[in-house]
Nucleic acid binder design. Sequence first.
DNA 1: CCAATCCATATTTGGTCGAC
DNA 2: GTCGACCAAATATGGATTGG
Lengths: 309, 309
Amino acid sequence: MGRSKLSLELISKEKSRNTTFQKRKKGLKKKIYEFSTLCGVDACLIIYGPKHGDRPVEPEIWPENSGEVVRIINRYNEHSKEEREKRNLNLSDFFLDRKKKAEEELSKLRRNNEEAYYSFQTGDDQINDFKEDQLWELVTSLDGKLKFMRTIIGSMKEKQGLMEQEAATMIEYCSLIPQQNQNPSSYVPGMYQRSMGLDHDMHQQQPISWVNPLDRRFPNDYPCDQKLMYNPSPMATSMNGMDYPHTQFSGGSSSNLHYNCPPLEGPANGAVSAMSKRSISDASFHQFNEFYDFQDVRMKHRMARFYKF
Amino acid sequence: MGRSKLSLELISKEKSRNTTFQKRKKGLKKKIYEFSTLCGVDACLIIYGPKHGDRPVEPEIWPENSGEVVRIINRYNEHSKEEREKRNLNLSDFFLDRKKKAEEELSKLRRNNEEAYYSFQTGDDQINDFKEDQLWELVTSLDGKLKFMRTIIGSMKEKQGLMEQEAATMIEYCSLIPQQNQNPSSYVPGMYQRSMGLDHDMHQQQPISWVNPLDRRFPNDYPCDQKLMYNPSPMATSMNGMDYPHTQFSGGSSSNLHYNCPPLEGPANGAVSAMSKRSISDASFHQFNEFYDFQDVRMKHRMARFYKF
DNA sequence: CCAATCCATATTTGGTCGAC
DNA sequence: GTCGACCAAATATGGATTGG
């Protein structure tokens, strides 16, 4: 009988496909084992089998020791992160510095979160409970926020010709921020917050104001004209035209349901300086980042641009 | 001459080790390509070559597209995370069922997100841009939300003796939800949203109301007395005392800056039925979950209890 | 030194069959 | 049906050779 020639396309018959899967999987593992042994190199293999209909697919790995796999994956991630950073070398030092600091803070915060998480799981933490109505308020509020954001997004149709390189950089940046944090400096210093319509349990209240899109000034602590100051190739060329997010607040609607975020530090107090808008906390950005799904990814890019880059 | 038999140990001669490395690497990639194609499965390969003395080792991957590799790695990470979480199998069927459904939806949403992400990265998606002031509104709003939540949390001191087992289940549930989603059913059907104090670009507006903590009723579509209805061991025993989150909205403060979330479906329309509160969307929950950090994890637990369990 | 090619043989694997 | 074993063709690949 002998072996028939293979046709390099999906094997149609499920039965023989499964057989081939098993056989070749075995062969593959043997190959990679030999390879790794003979050449003395790190290698790993991840295989997702065809879903067997009922159970969720189990990944098959080589080496069997998943710790090894994680190690190699991390090594890879490290590498690709470095790659990413290398590609970002055409950013100005100004932005690189900001990025670096954010990353440092992030990893610290992540550690904190993990510690909190596990100390909780192991019962080292105390469990507090809350009033139902308060919890429901939160949900309601968040759903409202969501709806609001979607509406805003839906109304945002203007484009600014964001260059692809820039976009890639930003999405990369976003992908560096998969965690929330618990940094108390999560407030916008000196920035009055818009109300969420609930003053329950709030003690500090005062009218809020919001960004008036027509009242803009260029900040003087920020490179308004990137092209002149850095000319960092692709980024810079699309940097102009969006250097005025650091606006003073003024006018705008107000609510009788509100609260304010008192300034924590920084120069701002009362009138909001450009700096205070610049220094909006990482926490906020991270939460922003987490809060919206990929459909809203474009917004993230804009945020990243204003915030970090 | 022909081929000599291999000895399955590190090849000592650097020269021939390198040759073998090159040859077998190629063969391995071919194998995995065939494997993946023939069997139609996800697979990826990471190889670290021997360091060439001078330059840092470059990883070789298959598929060549590093995005694919990242996707598969993430899938693997997701999986191992879920594995870890499956250790808590001592849940009642009631909760297991809910958990399973949530997991399924989640993985679907993740897929969607990943697709969106990569289609974006490869430029298949369009890049839309937004107005700065709108973006800043969002940040401001989110920061305000954060502050609000912290204040609420600070004021929540009552405890209800949440049992540890229950807490573990909930944190597990929460940790299953690391992604946002783009499900349009993210709104609370029939639930009026509290305002965020911004009616810019909003077209549907009407006065909002919010949960009055004093106006509570027990819903009749929800197991008020878990102990009698299910008695699902550890969970149920702590279920009583928090079965009245499904309150009709009434009274409360209102804002002149607001919007509403129109009912999408379900029985609720106008007055909010208990059911409508029950059926608050997963999307909302996920976003809630993402929005707050571990310091606020206790709140998540309560949410999970009201929402899912 | 590297890469491509050749060659002969080592290995892999599709199809089949039998045990369970 | 799942598994392993078997068989023969298909592949992979050490090692030599060739061409830079």
